[in-house]
Design a protein around this nucleic acid. Sequence first.
DNA 1: ATAATTTTTTAGATAAGGCTAAAATTTTTT
DNA 2: AAAAAATTTTAGCCTTATCTAAAAAATTAT
Lengths: 216, 216
Amino acid sequence: MFSLSEENYLKSIYHLEAIHGKGISTNSIAKKLETKASSVTDMIKKLAEKKVLVYKKYQGVSLTVLGRKEAANIVRKHRLWEVFLVDKLNFSWDEVHDVAEQLEHIKSPKLIDELDVFLGFPKMDPHGDPIPDKEGNFQKIEKRLLSTLEENKTGICVGVNDSSSDFLKYLDKNNISLGKKIKVLSKESFDGSLTILIHSKEITISKKISNNIYIQ
Amino acid sequence: MFSLSEENYLKSIYHLEAIHGKGISTNSIAKKLETKASSVTDMIKKLAEKKVLVYKKYQGVSLTVLGRKEAANIVRKHRLWEVFLVDKLNFSWDEVHDVAEQLEHIKSPKLIDELDVFLGFPKMDPHGDPIPDKEGNFQKIEKRLLSTLEENKTGICVGVNDSSSDFLKYLDKNNISLGKKIKVLSKESFDGSLTILIHSKEITISKKISNNIYIQ
DNA sequence: ATAATTTTTTAGATAAGGCTAAAATTTTTT
DNA sequence: AAAAAATTTTAGCCTTATCTAAAAAATTAT
């Protein structure tokens, strides 16, 4: 059994490995968890003893098969709860994250199995992220950043790279949501900003925005 | 904001006050929480500073208005989650307690408001206990222990005094559930055991059992 | 009313998880 | 290849919530 803190470390390392591959540095974990590197060193020693990750001094960590399964399960819970909040309790996609961060730590296998049934075995959460199954497997959809789309080409919004309330509210304000068509009208080479057609309206978005929207 | 531990103290004191009135002893809290009296002394000092209870050395504690509201809200959350588990996720009444003990500590006013809506504003949990509203008020139904019912009289089961899985499974096994008619056929004065008619069957139950069943 | 018992509090210790500051190691620069 | 910089670890301390053992107060019994 893992403590709340241990679970948060596992989840962070899992997400970091998804981006950077194996060998996650102490500092990057500290940044992700908004804590200090010295605290991370302490915790990863403990997690290494619990066989969920491999740690060699000064060389970062990698999840073991056990650790990855454990982490995927926390992510599974987080995303199922997000679906519940949006589909059943009238939450909007920018309100779910903090609550799901709490709910993901509830320990009850039956609860999560039944929730899955109740929600109709969803495969995606409200932000377009895949929901792992009990073994930690999930369908990986091909997607690319909106920022990589060429002028005059069209894509469909299938996900976001940032689930912060601020970013999602910005998207809402501009009628950008999952499933929407987005056409790139022009690209400013100086700062990478895009003028796009969304919801039959022309708007200009910064590179930072287009770097956080996934299309298909 | 209160810690998980603080919330559990508040809830326990709230339940103890409901039975014994004001002035709850250190020892009784320790017993309820399965901890030591010295730990209780430390915690109630902290809670007194936070203005949720009044404490005078060697004289036990009483919840303040603030403390009672806080505690009622935790009970409200616990019972709403129990309804959710039974009504929506196919839990039986003997499986909900431990999970609800965890869920009751999730912090999100919107979550509990929306859950209340989603469940149709239930007034009772699966064990027949009332669900307080946001102000901590609830309808008190008149009920008495089955052990106080006279011979040849009939009552309707409206609640239980013990929500442990073992007790509830015993009730299931004997077809005793909320809303069921129970007739006392005879009373053994030696040990207080009762022979009752339930679900058109005659069974004999101990005093301990009849002391944990509420009827109306 | 004093002695015995029970309850409650205090004092000091422990474990988890975090911090700062300093030391050790690795990486980057010159 | 050495020096500088960045990263990581260690050492020691803090807080929260516990505990045990001993002291203090209240209650009960004689």
